[in-house]
Design a protein around this nucleic acid. Structure first.
Length: 228
DNA sequence: CGATGGGCGTCACTTACGTCA
DNA sequence: GATGACGTAAGTGACGCCCAT
């Protein structure tokens, strides 16, 4: 089964078309010529089409259920506000329906079960799209914050190196930079850093930061040996 | 017991239509 | 009134799961 967004938590595939749904949508539409659409038409009715047709037979005429007209044009049904509200309430309660719930809802709203099913499908898609947009915004802000933090740390490293050259004595006795005793991502303050000698600390600070200022977090991390 | 095929539900993508600025 | 952007109902194919054979 495909992974669900709600199961993934903060999931985002930037390569996914969802990252830019509108542009992808438009591009895809431009690419799809009527000829291609004709070629894509199934030679035989699919399982789904058959099911829909069957439901159509059970549910009433095309005229009243929003099916295709005689000329083949698709008649679009707009759900009433009341119908939408009931569906919305039901969706909040359970985003997926079992057959019994679907049938009950369809009967209550005077719709075909297929219409209820489609509404839930589209509703789930809209929810997922919204969540993706939210995730994308969040990750963008994270990226900006980390970039800024990285810039700041690089600058601090440069300053420390300069100080070490100019006055090693002062450097050895200075208190540790506060920025490097607290992890900006998990915001935990390291107690071991305070207990360590200023000499070893400073050395660690410089070497760690010099590795790219990426391994600031004091949680167990793997620090790559610097490549030449 | 594993392979296979059909039924079913869901998803991603797409199309087509209604609405609104 | 014409037009384009947008929202959304619906069509389609693919995929995974389940179950019978």
């Amino acid at each position: 089964m495909m992974e669900r967004v709600e199961d993934l938590g903060l999931s985002l595939s930037l390569s996914s078309s969802l990252a830019a749904p509108r542009t992808h949508h438009v591009a895809a539409m431009l690419l799809r010529s009527p000829e291609k659409r004709f070629l894509e038409m199934p030679l035989l009715p699919s399982k789904r089409s058959e099911a829909a047709a069957e439901e159509g037979l059970r549910g009433g005429s095309d005229e009243e259920d929003g099916g295709c007209g005689i000329d083949g044009s698709r008649k679009k049904l707009r759900l009433s506000k009341d119908q939408s509200a009931v569906l919305e309430d039901s969706f909040r309660e359970h985003p997926t329906l079992n057959p019994r719930q679907k049938a009950a809802l369809a009967q209550q709203l005077g719709l075909r079960p297929r219409q209820v099913e489609v509404w839930f499908q589209n509703r789930r898609a809209r929810t997922k799209l919204k969540q993706t947009e939210v995730d994308c915004e969040f990750l963008k802000r994270c990226c900006e914050t980390l970039t800024e933090e990285n810039r700041r740390l690089q600058k601090e490293v440069q300053e420390l190196r300069a100080l070490k050259l100019v006055s090693p004595h002062l450097y050895m006795h200075m208190s540790p930079p506060t920025t490097l005793t607290m992890c900006p991502s998990c915001e935990r303050v390291s107690s071991s850093a305070a207990a360590a000698s200023s000499d070893r600390r400073a050395a660690a600070i410089v070497s760690t930061a010099a590795d790219g200022a990426a391994a600031v977090c004091h949680r167990p991390i793997a620090v790559r040996p610097q490549q030449s």
